[in-house]
Design a protein around this nucleic acid. Structure first.
Lengths: 240, 240
DNA sequence: CGCGTCCTTGAACTGATTCAATTGCGGTGG
DNA sequence: CCACCGCAATTGAATCAGTTCAAGGACGCG
């Protein structure tokens, strides 16, 4: 059962307190269009583990991530399921004009999303050059990032992949300063392994190495403490 | 020196004989807009090996590939250069509103492209919902394909990567029927290796295996004969 | 003909996987 | 409160796929 099919708890969009205001789709819009967007937007809290939408289902809405992390999943014809991407605020989910979703989206942590119902959103998209442009740009950026990952995955050894991903998660908890920080991993070892194209064992071994080097500490399997973010970034060195 | 800076040989777009008419950006447009697009479009033949545009240079135009294969290259800060994508007709090159190109594009074979100068193209884009929509869809499709490749690169052994890429090239020479066909590889072994995240030696070895299995024959290093395309596709099995 | 470049092949090595066992932890029930 | 279960994560040892290093062959070009 996906979120989309359920009745409220939906809230009017809390634009005043929007956590992604300065990066969101809304920002570049002129006041009137921003108001239109606001009028169709609804916010919602999705608990960890819940599906937001499901591959193959009809597209009934798009969304922006306000807080939390979303897993994008693909179910290949062969069966099983693969993690396509981890998405963070203020990313947009549902790039498609198709009738059905290409991927499933699942809340990897508790997630707050801003939902735009499909038809009014597409109508607005038709009216607003600014909106379609910023959407397009966001898509182009993601394309770029997917391509970069494609390159690194082929080339980069396991250790660096792990460091890179941890660093990415860490950065999204506080993009400022380079001191110490602590965060909750939004994914299990097997999720990490799946995303990185490695085995669980390899991921685990490399996390151990990271620990031995003193770059991270683990309070529990999911609770990561980074004594010095700069060191971690230096180790990740230009992966993202 | 990139193509963009040179004076003609440019031709008015040969829309009547357009090789990609049925798939192109133009098709979905209403007659008037198609005419506008046509009026700004120019076709050009780029010889193998020549740069079409260069990473970091100012964007002066976009283009659709009409025939041939284009290599998209990225020059990482570290130096060197990596192959980001092989692009085929009717793909569009230059997804960005940025002022400068994110990648370099090089003709991997002789290539015919249909060029749209930046400013009039963007202006038209602002006027035509259909155009911006089909561009957006094309970008979303590429995003999808990049993501799929990202997944396979992490997971799939060398042999299948090689088969997959060869099959992709083969398909673009004749998308119909499943019989025998012959084509010219648009890339050297080291290009293939680079794109696949493998070494030259591994690529070579796997091509040898393919040959021993009778799935392909080589007249020369670049001339590939596929006795039975269906067999090759079966071997590639759902990579693309 | 000879040289350079690209491709192929071989053999040793290395990093990641596989298989197997152990540890650690949250939850349940005695 | 502790014993026990089940699942996730870690660790170890053997194996294997792909790399690295090194040498030889094919083709195009002067």
């Amino acid at each position: 059962m996906t979120i989309e099919n359920k009745l409220p708890p939906e809230q009017p969009a809390p634009c005043n307190a929007c956590p992604i205001l300065e990066y969101s789709l809304c920002l570049p819009l002129p006041a009137r269009q921003r108001e239109s967007l606001r009028s169709i937007a609804r916010s919602r809290i999705v608990p960890q583990g819940q599906l937001i939408f499901e591959q193959g289902n009809e597209v009934v809405s798009f969304a922006s991530i306000m807080t939390g992390v979303v897993k994008l999943l693909r179910t290949p014809p062969a069966g099983g399921s693969q993690i396509v991407a981890f998405m963070h605020p203020p990313e947009f989910i549902g790039y498609t004009f198709d009738k059905v979703h290409l991927y499933s989206a699942e809340a990897a942590t508790d997630v707050e999303i801003c939902i735009y119902p499909r038809d009014p959103f597409l109508a607005l998209l038709g009216k607003s050059k600014k909106l379609s442009r910023s959407l397009f740009e966001a898509a182009a950026e993601e394309l770029d990032s997917a391509r970069k990952w494609r390159l690194t995955l082929g080339r980069v050894p396991a250790y660096q992949r792990v460091v890179g991903l941890l660093a990415k998660f860490a950065q999204h908890t506080r993009s400022d300063e380079g001191g110490a920080l602590e965060f909750l991993l939004p994914a299990s070892r097997s999720d990490l392994a799946d995303y990185l194209g490695l085995t669980v064992e390899t991921v685990s071994r490399n996390i151990t190495i990271l620990r031995q080097k003193g770059l991270i500490e683990l309070k529990s399997a999911r609770e990561v403490f980074v004594p010095n973010m700069d060191d971690l970034l230096a180790e990740a060195d230009m992966i993202n």
